[in-house]
Design a protein around this nucleic acid. Structure first.
Lengths: 195, 195
DNA sequence: CCTGTCGGCTAATGAGGGTTAGCCGACTGT
DNA sequence: ACAGTCGGCTAACCCTCATTAGCCGACAGG
């Protein structure tokens, strides 16, 4: 095994960047090749297809997101703290991996079956995770919401928004956004103000 | 003027529907034609181009959104009430015109210049409108936020989310979502709990 | 009737772009 | 030295589309 794994990684990174900026459909294999200094057809020495590049990106993204979610949830048994940490993890992922998250949200349509279904299932799992956190909190008397579904959608949507506008060199740091959105989430589910 | 205006409208509606479901790039003129019962090339008897269809949709959407925003803002002079109404208008538009909002958010990339710039300018105006509402509220002592920018982004992102998941036949009605999101917005900017 | 115009159609054009075929230089291991 | 593999390249294939050209039936008005 040579360092060529790094070339494959470079291709994936370039593809991610271009998919983010131009969209999957508008990105050509020639574009991706140019970004790593080779011609379009040469890419096929490293990757199976353009579609495969997208599938890899989306799958990795969902895996990472789910893994981080589980870690965050398992790190506490207090419903309020669990929701805060899950929200922060969600926001941090979307700030730190803006491109993955952005493409992951926007290009589901570009996925061919059966991958689309698989990703949508993973996504539904993730959403259900948040809904459960809210429901548990309500059951434990920590939260008070009109609709657990609505509250969880709202929290998730906040994260997606972050992926759209967050910039590393912007005036808002990842820590600021994560903390603030954690607070937003708790206030939206009617958790009592901070201890 | 014949009833052919209705055909043109039908085409626009079909295009909007298809752009929403498949995306601009993946929608073909033949698809749009089929949706109204004619062949692709026949569309050119009614519309200038595929790109033009998108431009119309995006422009109308931004015009409507800005108009509704102004009405909402002008309907009160109390900062809290202004923000609540603007948020409700935002959410209602995104629930009622899911497709327009969805396409408007997602297909900016598909717009050719100079339309893209024009739409982005309009969009920036709209965002600034919300930021100003938050800033005014803070100045008036009604709100308390860590960052007006962050709070306004959060409110806007909630609306975009609505366009993605709202369904007319879902368990959540437009009224429920609008009211609840208005409350979310106020709680996020630290407005004192309801009167 | 005759003549436009309206609004459809099919066929053709031309560009774009994913993917495959087949060639070749460079480096590796023997 | 030599054989093989790795990873480039160009050319070609082939398909999908937006758009244009040019034809034609229906129908309205004189």
């Amino acid at each position: 095994m040579t360092v060529s794994g790094s070339r494959t990684e470079g291709i994936r990174a370039a593809a991610l960047d271009l998919f983010t900026r131009l969209g999957y459909g508008a990105t050509t294999m020639a574009d991706i090749g140019a970004a790593v200094g080779i011609r379009g057809p040469s890419l096929y020495k490293h990757v199976a297809s353009k579609q495969d590049l997208l599938v890899q990106i989306m799958t990795d993204t969902m895996d990472n997101l789910l893994a981080l979610h589980r870690v965050a949830v398992d790190s506490s048994s207090d419903p309020t703290e669990r929701l805060r940490r899950a929200t922060e993890a969600h926001v941090r992922y979307h700030a730190r991996h803006r491109q993955e998250a952005f493409v992951g949200n926007r290009e589901i349509r570009s996925l061919a079956e059966p991958h689309r279904t698989k990703i949508l299932t993973r996504r539904a799992e993730y959403e259900a995770g948040f809904r459960d956190l809210v429901t548990e909190g309500v059951a434990a008397g920590c939260f008070s919401v009109a609709s657990a579904r609505l509250a969880s959608y709202a929290i998730l949507d906040l994260g997606m928004g972050v992926a759209a506008w967050f910039r590393d060199d912007g005036e808002l740091t990842e820590d600021t956004v994560a903390w603030q959105y954690g607070e937003f989430a708790l206030s939206m589910v009617g958790a009592p103000p901070r201890s």
